[in-house]
Design a protein around this nucleic acid. Structure first.
Length: 294
DNA sequence: GGTAGACCTGGACGC
DNA sequence: GCGTCCAGGTCTACC
């Protein structure tokens, strides 16, 4: 057994990251509520597939997994640090949100980090799978994608890692549509896998790029299946908070909050959050809505 | 720049 | 059990 204790830049709240959005429900994540433990099946660069149990450290994340050598430990540390944004600093957001009752809880509960997958590729695919469909279908499609293309944990075919770009690229759009049931998204997913495999698109460089957010957004919008909502969602995941992922949920929440439930458009959402500037996305994301619909 | 319609799946509903 | 309707963003064509 290997146990790693990964400290975070304070303040840090493990549970707020795990609950920051629905990602914990998407394979190869799993979540055990009784112990507040996040599971993840990770494929290491040496192709070994391991299971991580991630739990709340006093001021960071505790990782329990099988025995790892030094290089593997380093890789796991880097991956988990990215997934939890351990090094992120929200002091400026907390300062900006002071005096706003609807954001009072963010500083109190050390909220701000958004749970990420280990790779940007995985988060782009998952984001595409959230578009134009219901959440239950997103979960199904992700599960099937992992079950179909993911490398299995040693001796446990029921537990698989998220597919690599090359494993998806090796299939066909028809197979993705017929077997994984991703519908019209199949060509977009296949094309993305091809672009990444061929080196034409270096998604992982987006983690550390100093590219201005507008430019990064333009890059994201070159991906088929990624429109304004998906790009904003991915920017949030990448730690850029200038854009609001406006989907039907956003329209509903903003309408209930300020427009008495009447139908509104994206313009009204933008108008209401304009004053938050570079924190628009994060202010929207963690806004304490009147009724979040459960 | 704005808008209409097609794209798919799966669940709800009526018969 | 079958058919129909609907929710959900993106893309393309068109104005």
């Amino acid at each position: 057994m290997t146990r790693l204790n990964l400290p975070a830049r304070p303040p840090f709240n493990f549970t707020s990251v795990v609950n920051s959005h629905g990602w914990r429900q998407l394979a190869p994540f799993s979540y055990e509520e009784s112990t507040n433990t996040l599971g993840y099946i990770l494929r290491l660069s040496n192709e070994r597939v391991i299971e991580l149990a991630l739990s709340d450290g006093t001021d960071g994340v505790i990782v329990n997994t099988e025995k790892l050598d030094r290089a593997e430990q380093k890789e796991v540390k880097d991956r988990v640090a990215w997934m939890f944004g351990l090094d992120m600093d929200f002091a400026r957001f907390y300062s900006a949100s002071r005096g706003e009752p609807k954001l009072a809880r963010v500083k109190k509960r050390s909220i701000g980090r958004v749970l990420r997958s280990p790779t940007v590729f995985e988060d782009v695919i998952k984001t595409i799978l959230t578009t134009n469909t219901l959440w239950a279908a997103t979960r199904n499609m992700t599960r099937k994608l992992v079950d179909t293309f993911g490398a299995p944990l040693d001796g446990e075919t029921g537990k698989r890692a998220f597919p690599t770009p090359s494993s998806i690229a090796a299939g066909s759009p028809e197979f993705l549509k017929q077997t994984v049931r991703v519908g019209y998204r199949a060509p977009a997913i296949h094309q993305l896998a091809l672009r990444v495999t061929s080196g034409q698109l270096d998604l992982e460089s987006f983690k550390t790029t100093s590219m201005p957010t507008l430019e990064l957004r333009r890059e994201l919008l070159t991906i088929n299946g990624v429109g304004p909502y998906a790009a904003a969602n991915l920017l949030m995941i990448l730690g850029r908070h200038d854009f609001i992922p406006i989907d039907s949920y956003a329209l509903k929440m903003v309408s209930q909050e300020w427009y008495g439930g009447k139908p509104i458009t994206a313009k009204e959402v933008e108008k209401r959050f304009k004053k938050w500037g570079e924190f628009k996305g994060i202010a929207f994301w963690f806004w304490d809505w009147k009724d979040d619909g459960g």
